[in-house]
Design a protein around this nucleic acid. Structure first.
Lengths: 204, 204, 204, 204
DNA sequence: GATGAATGAGCCTTCATTCAT
DNA sequence: AATGAATGAAGGCTCATTCAT
C-alpha cells in the first residue's frame, strides 16, 4: 500500500492476485488458440483487465507463458509429493496412468503443453524455464521411483534411476502426443499396456 | 507428353520438383523459426523462388505443412518396411531406439514435429492429415509388432496389438519431447531403459 | 463520465471524432481512387493516424464505406427535411434540380456514389446498408411528394406515391451518371427538361 | 494464316473470334465479381484459354473492359435502330420502359454498368471510351426523339432535343441504379410513372 | 494501479503482367 | 497461336508493445 514499505520489484499481494488472474486467462486462451493465436488483447479481456496493464505485471508475452510453465511445474510436483505421501506408490502410479489415458480434457492440456514445447525449442529463455522445471520434476520423480523400488533401489546406479525418471516423463508426454495424433485411442487396451510399462519401470 | 492424357490438375514433373524444393525449404524454416515464425517470404527465398509462386504449387501455408507431414509419413513407413524386410526385427528396433537416443539432430526433428502437433491441436485440416498419417504408420507398426511376436501374436486380441503400436509411438514421441525438456539426457542409461521397454512391448 | 453509464462498446467522444476524421479521409480517397484503388494506408495517412488504428475504430474497410453511406444518408434526409420546412416545396425541388445540373463538383460526388453502388451490387453487407439507407430516404421523399401534391395526394394510392419517389431518386441518380458519361452536358437545356419532369412528378 | 498476307496489327478472323470469347467471359466475370474482383486468370479460365494468351489479344485488363463497353454500345445502337425501323416509336419506347422495370436480370446488367462507370470516373482512357459510346448512343437517340415528336420537332432547338436524349439516358440509368438501391421495387407502379415520364419526353 | 489510444512492423495472400518455350 | 511458370508489388489486417493520462 505504501511505497516506502514496499521495496522496488517486490510485488504486492494485490499484484500477485492480478498475476494469477492473467495466468488463468492466458492458460485458457493458449489452450484454445495456441501461443501465437492468442492475442494479448484476448487474454486481457478474459482476465478482465486492459491489455496495457498486463505489461505492469509481466515483462512480455513470453514472460506470461514462462510463468504458466512454472505454475504447472509446482502443481505436478505437488501431485508427486501426494503420491509419495500415500500408502502404495505403485498403486498410485498405475491409477495415474489409467487417469491419463481416460481423462477427457487431455486434448486441452496437450494443446498447451505442445505449444510450450514447440515455442521452447526456439525460444532460449522459455527453453531454460522448461528445462529447469523438468529438472525439478525429474528429481522429485526419482524419489518416487526409489520409493517404489524399495530397498533394492540402493543397489542401482544413480544414472539408472534418473533414466527411469526420464522414460517415465517420456511415457506421459508420449501419451499427451497421442491425444492429438490418435484421438480415437483404444483407451482400455492402451491403459493396460501402459500399466505394463509402468510396472517394468518401477520394479527392479 | 500428350495433353489429353494430362488433365488440368495433374502436376507436371517440373511442378513436382518445385514442390519438393518448397518442402525442403519450408521444413528448414519451420524447424528454425516455427510454423508461425517462418514467413512465406523467408520460405520462398530459401527455396529460391518468389513468394507468389509458392501459391501456384500449394493452396496456402497450411497446405505446405500438411505436405511435409505426408512426406515424413512416407519416410517413416519406408523405414518400417525396411525393418520388416530385414532379418531380425527385434534387433532392428533396439537399434532404432539406440539411434533415437543418440542422434545429434534430434532437436531439429523435434522442433518441427512439435510445431506440427501444436498446430494440429487447433487446426482441423492439419489435424486430419496428422491423424491419417499416424493411422497409416500405426497400421504398418502393427505388422512389425506381429512379426516380432511371431506365431504367438495370433493368440492376442487385435486391440492389444494396436495398443502396443500406440505405446510404441508414444515412446518415440516421448523421446522427442525429452530432446527439448532434457537436452542433457543421460543417453546411455536412457537407451538401456528404453530398450527394456521395447523388449517388453515386442514380447508376449 | 461515469464508467458505469458507459458500457464497453459505447464509443467515447474522442473515438467519435476520430471516426469522423477517418470518414472524411476515406471519402476523399475513395473519390480519388475508388474503393479498391484506395489503400487503408493511404486513408490512414490522409486521416493523420496509423493504419492499424483505423481497425480500432472500424471493423474493416467495408465498415468504413458503410459508415460513409450512412452519413450521406443523414445529410440527404436533413436536406429533404429542410425542404419540407420551407415555404414552397415545388419551388425548392426545381431549384434542387437546377443545382444538381450545375454544381461543379458533381463528378466527385458521382465517383463516390458509383463506387458505392458498384461495390454494393456484389457485397451483401454493403448492399444491405445501401438498401436501408435508400428506404429511409424514400420514406422521407414520399412525405415531400405528398406535401407538393397537396390535398389531392389523399386520392392517390400509396404505391403511386412510392413509385414517384422511386422515379425521383432515379432522376437524380441518372443525372449523377451523366456527370461521368456526358461531362459536356448542355446544362441549361437539361435543367429545363429535368424541371419539366419534376413538375410532372409533383403534380397530380 | 500467312503473316505476309496479314500486315501488322490487322487481326485475323481467328483472333477476332478469340477476342469475342474473351469478351463474353470477361463480361460474365465482371458481372459476378466486379472489375477488380475478377482476375485475369478467372477470365482466362472462363474463356477457355490461358491467361497469358489474353495479352496477345488485348493490351491489358482496361483494354478488355473498354472493348466490352464498345460492344454494348453497338448492341444498344442496334436496338435503337430497330425501334426507328418499327411502326410506332412511342409504343416501342413505352414497351422498353416496361421491360426495363421488369426484366429479372437487371441486377447483373446494373452490376457491370456501375462497375464500368465507377472505373471510368477515375480511369481517363476508359472514360474516353464511355463518353464516346454515350455520344454515339445519344446521337441515335436524338433521331428517335425527333421521329417520335414528328413534324413539330423542327420547331424545337437542337439543344432541347439533345437535352431530352440526355434525360432519356438518365431515366434508364436511374432505373439501373434502382435495381441495386431498391431491389423490391414496386414494378407495376414504377412502370406506370416511368411511362408517364417517357410520354412527356417524347411529346412536344 | 489501470486504461485504452496509438503505433508500426510484418504477415499471408492475390494478381496483372511478362516471357521462354 | 498458345501455354503456364514465374515475378514483384501491393494490400488488408493483426498484434505486441508503449505511453499519456
Amino acid at each position: 500500500m505504501c511505497a516506502a514499505l514496499n521495496p522496488a520489484h517486490v510485488p504486492t499481494d494485490r499484484a500477485l492476485a492480478r498475476r494469477q488472474q492473467v495466468l488463468d486467462a492466458a492458460a485458457e486462451c493458449f489452450r484454445r488458440r495456441g501461443f501465437h493465436g492468442a492475442s494479448m488483447a484476448e487474454i486481457a479481456k478474459t482476465a478482465g483487465m486492459s491489455a496495457g496493464h498486463i505489461y505492469n505485471l509481466f515483462e512480455n508475452k513470453d514472460d506470461v507463458i514462462a510463468a504458466i510453465v512454472e505454475r504447472d511445474r509446482d502443481e505436478i510436483v505437488r501431485r508427486i509429493q501426494e503420491t509419495l505421501d500415500g500408502e502404495d506408490v505403485m498403486e498410485a502410479m498405475l491409477a495415474a496412468v489409467e487417469d491419463s489415458c481416460h481423462q477427457p480434457d487431455r486434448d486441452a492440456e496437450a494443446a498447451l503443453n505442445l505449444e510450450v514445447l514447440a515455442e521452447a525449442s526456439r525460444n532460449a529463455k522459455l527453453a531454460r524455464v522448461v528445462v529447469n522445471s523438468e529438472t525439478v520434476i525429474r528429481r522429485k520423480a526419482m524419489l518416487l521411483i526409489q520409493t517404489a523400488l524399495g530397498p533394492k533401489a540402493d543397489r542401482l546406479p544413480a544414472d539408472d534411476i534418473e533414466a527411469r525418471a526420464s522414460v517415465l516423463a517420456a511415457l506421459f508426454n508420449g501419451l499427451m502426443v497421442l491425444s492429438v495424433s490418435q484421438p480415437d485411442l483404444k483407451q482400455a487396451a492402451v491403459s493396460r499396456v501402459m500399466q505394463r510399462m509402468m510396472r517394468v519401470l518401477l520394479e527392479p
